[in-house]
Design a protein around this nucleic acid. Structure first.
Lengths: 332, 332
DNA sequence: TCGATTTAGTAAAACGGTTTAGTAAAAAGC
DNA sequence: GCTTTTTACTAAACCGTTTTACTAAATCGA
């Protein structure tokens, strides 16, 4: 039992494809198809449960109602949560998501970008690592609808939904200093990402404005390919250096550090303060507790979808840069 | 600058669409296209960076190289992690994922199922809530390639990748009893899902085999729409009932319960043992520590993709049911 | 040398929709 | 009663590929 096409419906009912198509697209009245005919077609279509082939539709219309979601890793709760919010917002507009995880590598990003474009997605939502602007510039030149979030690149001009990174991080670190921290280390994933650099800058500024010497040895980069173990090792280094606070540039490494702290440094757990960019529920009660900079996830999702909608509709070329205020959650 | 099509390429080079298509699909030799022509076409295609329109390809071939991933919620780490693994496995085979979160509601599941089918996905991977078998039976009757995981329904015959639920849960609860727990409550999300019922059955069996009376009041169901707060409230109930252990049927509520325990019942934290189905890193060090039944996520992803591949290729109708052994992680 | 085969390519149909341009019959206008 | 307009509908082109069925020229075999 093959799937029925419009052609089948038309033949079985004795009408032309055109008529059936008009009726199915609610153009019956506009196109002067008689009520009787419309009802007959609709009834039949319901009876045989006809389902239009979206691929054919997309080909003809040049529109797939599909948005690509390109991120470092969908299993990172931050991207998963935003992805879920976006999924729901887009569903209301008749769009749906296809996802691609880049692992922060340029090859995968290019591959996925190509894949998305070949599949004719109508727009892209991306947390790009911006390692190679080539492909992105090409797309931008073609006015391909794109909205960037979470990550930015100073040389790339586009639509951005971001949070304030530097001052937010600075505030968080200053908060720790205010509460007595003096020797403050930092752990970050690969910081060849501008947004992460800004967070690290915020950390530096907080220290220097409070006359704490910046010791580059206390700024540790963890290996992306082995996050958990590498975080453990780098944390060990900082603990050995007797820091009294550790700052993290995202929540994944913070979570791993909490784990390492509990398993390997239980005795020091009262002696070190944690400060994290991004929030996690567990920061409310973990040992150590974590003062965190919480990103406004719902707002990010809302703006992203809104702006993407604008870009896809407007003929004129807009480029918005929306910077949201994150919220400092102090936990002592 | 519109995107070039095969027709453009052909015209610009003075060949026919057919020839260009043959060359692009590596059928040049087979179809007797001269080496010179092949090279000329390939060089030109590279020069203008021609990208084939996958939608047109899909329409013609009746194959989209797309798999639908239907789950309760992509922001649930369990589904996100498996999703990520599946994404990578499929990418190697030239497939990619489109995702749909159902929130365990039948309406959304039907809507998404329809959407997937209309978009002509080549196959489906689903953690269905099986509330209404209608649509699934229709698809199964058409031999639509589907593989189910995590959830099952006794009346639905299909390809399943599951973990042993009942005995695994039974073992975990018995472990708690062995270590002294006597009054054991249970918290579950909506158990109109067979797999969850099995987990609850395991809990019941463990109790009765150890001559502990089953008190249905101690089996609490949390509200899906308000997971965090509802978990808190139901946990409160169990604490008031003075249970000495709580069993959870999935990791999300366990995480919320750990939060509630730390925030609202800190003083009782040593008096109650937690047992959870599904693992989380934080169980290693949380208070209370959590003895958990860890699902073999990689194996689930691998089998799911493997079986789906078989189903999509085989002409014959196979129906496999693979039940994996979860692992008990004791934490005291 | 002449029919058979191989080489190198092409025209046209097909996939399943949408859309443009049109037509024949009925109704309206005068 | 004849022209114009409206009603109700349709044929065919099109979106960008793949694929089938073909052809003309060159080469081969005996």
């Amino acid at each position: 039992m093959k799937k029925k096409s419009i052609k089948d419906i038309a033949q079985e009912l004795g009408y032309s494809k055109t008529t059936v198509s008009f009726v199915l697209n609610n153009k019956g009245d506009e196109k002067n198809i008689s009520k009787k005919t419309q009802e007959k077609i609709l009834a039949y279509v319901r009876e045989v449960n006809y389902q239009p082939n979206q691929i054919a539709k997309s080909l003809k219309k040049g529109k797939t109602n599909t948005i690509g979601y390109l991120i470092p890793d969908i299993s990172n709760p931050f991207y998963a949560k935003i992805g879920r919010l976006i999924e729901d917002l887009l569903a209301d507009k008749g769009y749906h998501l296809i996802i691609g995880s880049t692992d922060e590598t340029q090859e995968k990003e290019d591959l996925l970008l190509n894949m998305f474009v070949n599949r004719q997605v109508d727009g892209l939502i991306l947390a790009s690592s911006f390692e190679n602007l080539g492909m992105l510039n090409t797309l931008a030149a073609q006015r391909f609808p794109m909205v960037f979030f979470d990550r930015e690149h100073p040389d790339f001009f586009g639509n951005y939904i971001l949070v304030e990174n530097k001052n937010a991080m600075k505030g968080a670190v200053q908060n720790a200093i205010k509460h007595g921290s003096k020797k403050i280390g930092l752990l970050s994933i690969t910081p060849n990402v501008y947004s992460l650099e800004l967070r690290i800058d915020g950390y530096r500024e907080a220290l220097s404005e409070n006359e704490i010497d910046i010791d580059d040895h206390l700024i540790r980069i963890v290996d992306n390919n082995n996050l958990k173990e590498s975080t453990k090792a780098q944390l060990q280094y900082l603990i050995d250096e007797q820091v009294d606070a550790v700052v993290f540039t995202n929540n994944q490494i913070t979570a791993h550090a909490i784990w390492a702290m509990n398993i390997f440094h239980k005795e020091k757990i009262e002696d070190v303060r944690f400060v994290s960019f991004d929030n996690l529920d567990l920061f409310d009660y973990s040992q150590p507790k974590v003062t965190s900079v919480a990103q406004p996830i719902e707002k990010i999702a809302n703006y992203t979808v809104d702006i993407l909608g604008e870009v896809m509709n407007e003929k004129e070329h807009i480029s918005k840069r929306i910077v949201l205020e994150p919220k400092l959650i102090e936990r002592l």
